[in-house]
Simulated scan of single mutants.
Amino acid sequence: MTSGSTTAASPWFVRPPSAEHPARLFCFPFSGSGASAFSAWPAALGDVEVCPVQFPGRENRLAHPHYGTYEKLAADLVEPLAPLLDRPFAFFAHCAGALPAYETVLRLAERGLPTPDRLFVSGQPAPHDASRDRMLTMTETELRAEVEAFVRSRGIEPRPDMVELGLMVLLRDHAAAGAYRRTEPAAVDCPVVVLHWRDDPDVTLADLQGWRRYADSVEFREVDGGHYDFMDAPDELRKLLTHWP
């Protein structure tokens, strides 16, 4: 074990979390993506260590069986998370990643484990409203076009093999999103901070109001930028994510 490391390497994290920071921020990616969605983020935001979560079935875990459902993903994540909850921590989750993040909070509480100091959800309607996602009505051809447009938006010309791999991951994640059903809110025991991106063409501030039913303390913050601008860790977002410990 190297100096400063608190645990052996886990496939759930792209790097072993360090003991050098007093707080941790576990980051959940959106459908079709992986921990690389946070590759432009610094390793730490002030005193808060950034810990991207790597779901199975993508990137360096492509050979691992897909998680199948958000509920199973959350249940499977509890064990690797448990040793890392020895200091203040928060969850940040973007788009559909907010759904397994929320389910993970519930399972931590069920196991009597620590729960986050904050649950930050970005650009994602509440769990009972998740079935309204426009992508759930898309055909495979339309989803392929989404993958191509996303890759181009990151300044990369999409190669056919890149698109096919991205589509495969997205289709499996898409199936999990389509199968997810929570008709009645179950409250978490931590404050929820809901982030709305002002230039998001698909998710309005009104779409996010359902989160009010999920915690005693729910705060809404508007952030400049579009749906995927979180990937660049803009200053406004960084400040929000460093003021909770």
Results as ranks from 00 to 15, higher is better:
Ala186Gly: 04
Met231His: 08
Val193Tyr: 02
Ala175Met: 09
His243Asn: 14
Thr183Met: 07
Leu170Val: 10
Phe13His: 02
Asp161Pro: 01
Pro80Gln: 03
Gly123Val: 14
Asp216Tyr: 01
Leu171Thr: 00
Leu136Trp: 07
Ser153Pro: 06
Ala23Phe: 03
Pro125His: 06
Pro29Val: 04
Glu49His: 05
Leu25Phe: 03
Pro191Asn: 09
Ala93Phe: 12
Thr141Lys: 08
Pro114Met: 13
Met162Asn: 02
Phe230Met: 15
Leu73Glu: 03
Gly166Glu: 07
Lys72Ile: 06
Phe150Tyr: 13
Leu143Ser: 03
Glu59Leu: 04
Glu103Trp: 10
Phe26Pro: 05
Val218Ala: 06
Arg154Phe: 00
Ser5Glu: 12
Pro160Glu: 07
Pro65Cys: 08
Ser36Cys: 05
Pro83Arg: 07
Pro42Val: 14
Glu146Tyr: 05
Leu240Arg: 09
Trp244Cys: 09
Leu240Thr: 04
Val192Phe: 01
Ala175Ser: 09
Arg61Tyr: 01
Trp211Lys: 14
Pro127Ala: 05
Pro160Ile: 13
Leu167Met: 09
Pro185Gln: 07
Ser3Ala: 10
Arg172Trp: 00
Ala187Phe: 06
Pro201Gly: 12
Arg15Val: 02
Asp207Pro: 10
Asn60Ser: 07
Ser131Pro: 00
Phe92Gly: 03
Arg172Asn: 06
Leu205Gln: 13
Glu59Tyr: 00
Cys95Asp: 11
Pro234Cys: 13
Cys51His: 01
Val192Ile: 15
Gly112Ala: 12
Val14Phe: 01
Gln209Phe: 02
Ala233Ile: 14
Ala177Glu: 10
Arg221Val: 15
Phe30Lys: 13
Glu59Ile: 06
Met138Phe: 13
Leu119Pro: 00
Asp76Glu: 15
Thr183Glu: 11
Val48Ile: 13
Glu142Trp: 09
Arg213Pro: 00
Phe92Cys: 08
Met1Tyr: 00
Pro234His: 10
Glu236Gly: 07
Ser31Thr: 05
Ser5Asn: 05
Asp229Ala: 14
Cys51Ser: 00
Leu25Ala: 05
Ser18Ile: 08
Trp41Leu: 15
Pro29Thr: 02
Glu164Leu: 14
Ala93Met: 11
Pro191Tyr: 04
Asp232Arg: 15
Ala187Gly: 05
Leu241Arg: 12
Asp76Thr: 04
Glu148Leu: 06
Val163Pro: 00
Pro116Met: 05
Ala19Glu: 10
Phe92Leu: 11
Asp216Asn: 12
Asp202His: 12
Thr242Ala: 14
Leu81Ser: 00
Tyr214Lys: 15
Glu59Ala: 03
Phe26Arg: 11
Ser31His: 01
Glu146Pro: 00
Tyr214Leu: 10
Val53Pro: 00
Arg118Tyr: 02
Asp161Tyr: 06
Ala215Gly: 08
